[in-house]
Amino acid sequence: MMETRGSARRAPRLELVDGGVERRGRWLLRDVDLVIEPAMLTSVVGPNGAGKSTLLRLLSGTWRLTEGKALLGGFDLSALPRRQAARRVAYVPQTVRPTFEFTVREFVTLGRYPHESRLFGTRSADRGWIDRCLDDTDVLALAERRVTTLSGGELQRVLMARCLATEAEVLLLDEPTSNLDLAHGLDLLGLARRLACEGRSVVLVLHDLNAAARFADRVAVLDGGALIAEGPPAEVLNPDLLRRVFRVEAVPLEGSTAPVFDFEPLR
């Protein structure tokens, strides 16, 4: 089982104020007001094309907003130098297989970039921190393997290690469980849960609504580029909303504290 240590600084508040982004004449996301509460696990859900990945890009500051603002601890994220922003907010896009043959250690060390000095590179303190990140995500044994030879589950954990290596207090992960089998998926969600308990804000795009309901403190529902609802899973996820947004018939499962459902196609 994975065990996390590391800094327990409390994460800054990350918010999107009236955020919208237009690409090639189409609004991918518009009028989004969303607060990522510190030290919470927030799950972003929505059908394909709802704007979930776009939302993460805006929150990470890698995409510029067409209108509105992204604020990190009250400060405009776009006004922050990239390196400084990268020390506070880490973003992992949907998994792409690496093509260059870094070793796992080299790959995870890429996450130290915002802390590295241009002249002297990685310092020994950095190296110790890398070891801890590898250990936390249970990939220390893989340290000298080539990233191109990893299985999907191993790669996802290595990506988590790189994300931790940045020491960021806000972690944004786009579909981190999509390539994982059940056990590895649960492991990763458990790790995300623990990171949130330690004080980091974790935002996950998830397709599995029941996993979102079980693990997340808050759920944000997107549809057609708009934020439909946001709040604790028990308040947000109900058969009516699920029918509207996901076009499924949701039958609540008996005997569970979390709002979990059995899904059937609409009739």
Partner: peptide, 14 residues
């Protein structure tokens, strides 16, 4: 960092 794609590189501060 660019080897990992522009999006990843930008998110890490490049």
């Amino acid at each position: 960092l660019l080897l990992e794609g522009e999006e990843v590189a930008a998110s890490l501060g490049v």
